[in-house]
Design a protein around this nucleic acid. Structure first.
Lengths: 120, 120
DNA sequence: TTATCGTTTCGTTGTTTGACGAAATGACTC
DNA sequence: GAGTCATTTCGTCAAACAACGAAACGATAA
């Protein structure tokens, strides 16, 4: 029950759900996600840590950056089904589409430039 | 997105999730649910209205009582899948089992007696 | 070591949420 | 039409939460 509630609480904030959807195409580092959503880095970090603690995303550190990604198929069933439900339900939503557009723009930009722009 | 968030917000409270699970065996009236969980009737009513607004339960009025039940298979896909996920994930949890035991006891008791006990 | 830089943690602030009791509602009975 | 009764709505309070900036952290670079 506790694990399950960690997932539902993580999914109860729209910005966290948007972040899950943004990761659909592959891993992103914190500053890329910060750029997409326009929040302070500390805010984004907090959201990602909540998603991470619920098991909905995994993290990896490389060079200066921390990358987050969706879990692989070996994740617990409850997590896999939650993610399937989220993606299936929102893949075509307006918010997802808008975020995907932002993401496309950001992926064209060099990481260092993004980070400098944010002074992060 | 708004509909989806109504569902995740509804599922983000453990007591509301317990109520969904309690309805698995069939419809219950507000005072029966109140008896199971030991909250004030106004609290239970609020929880049920949140679940109802999210489309996770349906209601029916009969005589003095309002009955709530899980939706039939004609419910929206997003709702059906959410409920499937909840039930599949928690059917065997300790909390569900304890509530089911309470429920069994309460179903043996006459509705009028329950309501009187609560002065509701 | 010291500096730099992306990320996280901490403390604060304003908002949301869950609980309750009291009062309102609305249907059924007399 | 007045009374009864289950349920809902309203107002209040305390706890939880989301956002931010400042400071701490931890790894890499000089």
């Amino acid at each position: 029950m506790r694990d399950f509630m960690a997932i539902t609480k993580a999914l109860s904030d729209p910005n966290r759900v948007r972040m899950l959807l943004a990761l659909r195409r592959g891993e992103l580092c914190v500053c890329q996600i910060t750029e997409i959503f326009g929040f302070a880095p500390s805010t984004v970090s907090k959201h990602l840590s909540i998603l991470h603690r619920a098991g909905l995303i995994l993290s990896r550190k490389s060079e200066r950056w921390v990358y987050y990604r969706l879990p692989d198929p070996s994740a617990p069933v409850v997590v896999r089904e939650a993610l399937d439900w989220v993606h299936k339900s929102l893949a075509k939503s307006a918010a997802t589409h808008a975020d995907a557009k932002q993401l496309k723009r950001i992926l064209k930009t060099d990481l260092a430039v993004i980070c400098q722009r944010q002074k992060c």
